[in-house]
């Protein structure tokens, strides 16, 4: 065996180790019977998986995260679909600027977005914690919504709208009758991507969370600072499997990867 022929398998091994390895460690740790978060796990039990469901703050923050992920993504789509439509169908002055601004939350680090929102919107305008989080998650998901919906709009011929109009439909009617049904896959994909993005979001939520109102990831960090038992690992595993399940179903039924 030459060095060259070992090189590719080595790279592959390293990639898999660093991508999948930590995940496997967490999963293994969540079935530990021991009292502290440790690897290799001490014994096997389901006690920490069970404990996850008994922690009151996890339940509340899970509800909050779910609300933000569903509500924020829905809001981002309500804003993003018309925006994508306008960007793809009309030659608008400043379209590129709009595209850049809309994409900004992807490029700008979350810490900065969080700080900026806190300093310049939440504090001066006395926005409540929940509305602030909702606003932030909507803004964070918007770029994904615009990007994914734009991609499916670009694949759709615009003359079908004219065809619908000539068959008696109004312009708005044509949008709902022939555009929306044909970008349904893109919209669902955007929803799933937005949901996962929002649900896993930490830095921005960290800045905007407040007394009694936290998203699940923020709550997990707070929990770990106090209690170092494997329940956080157990919760992480549960969430990871939930995400994998959603993406798997999306790929299976929607051809998710076509749009992302």
């Amino acid at each position: 065996m030459t060095i060259r022929s070992l090189f590719i398998p080595l790279i592959l091994f390293l990639v898999i180790t660093f991508l999948i390895g930590p995940f496997l460690i967490i999963v293994a740790a969540s079935f530990s019977a021991g009292e502290t978060l440790a690897f290799p796990p001490q014994g096997f039990s389901l006690r920490w998986i069970g404990k996850v469901f008994t922690v009151e703050s996890f339940r509340a923050s899970f509800g909050m995260s779910l609300f933000l992920a569903v509500g924020g993504t829905a809001a981002a789509l309500v804003l993003g679909i018309p925006a994508s439509y306008a960007l793809s169908r009309y030659k608008l002055p400043g379209a590129e600027i709009v595209r850049t601004i809309v994409s900004a939350p992807i490029i700008v680090p979350g810490i900065i977005v969080g700080l900026a929102l806190l300093r310049y919107i939440v504090v001066p305008f006395q926005v409540g914690i929940t509305p602030a989080l909702f606003l932030a998650h909507t803004a964070l998901v918007l770029p994904y919504a615009v990007r994914v919906v734009s991609a499916s709009l670009d694949n759709l011929r615009s003359d079908i709208e004219e065809a619908a109009v000539l068959l008696g439909s109004s312009r708005l009617g044509a949008f709902f009758r022939v555009v929306m049904p044909n970008i349904r896959g893109g919209i669902l994909s955007a929803f799933i991507l937005g949901f996962v993005t929002s649900f896993n979001q930490v830095p921005v939520s960290l800045f905007l969370s407040g007394p009694g109102v936290r998203t699940l990831p923020v709550d997990m960090i707070a929990y770990m600072e106090i209690v170092f038992d494997p329940s956080v690992a157990a919760l992480s595993s549960l969430l990871a499997f939930l995400s994998i399940g959603i993406v798997f179903l999306a790929e299976r039924f929607l051809g998710f990867s076509r749009y992302v």
């Binding site: 011929r157 079908i160 065809a163 109009v165 000539l166 068959l167 008696g168 439909s169 022939v178 044909n182």
Partner: peptide, 18 residues
């Protein structure tokens, strides 16, 4: 256009794919 009673067969046919 939607009230003209004028039909148009597009070059690309523009059938509704769904």
């Amino acid at each position: 256009a939607n009230k003209r009673a004028v039909g148009l067969v597009f070059q690309s046919y523009a059938l509704f794919p769904h």
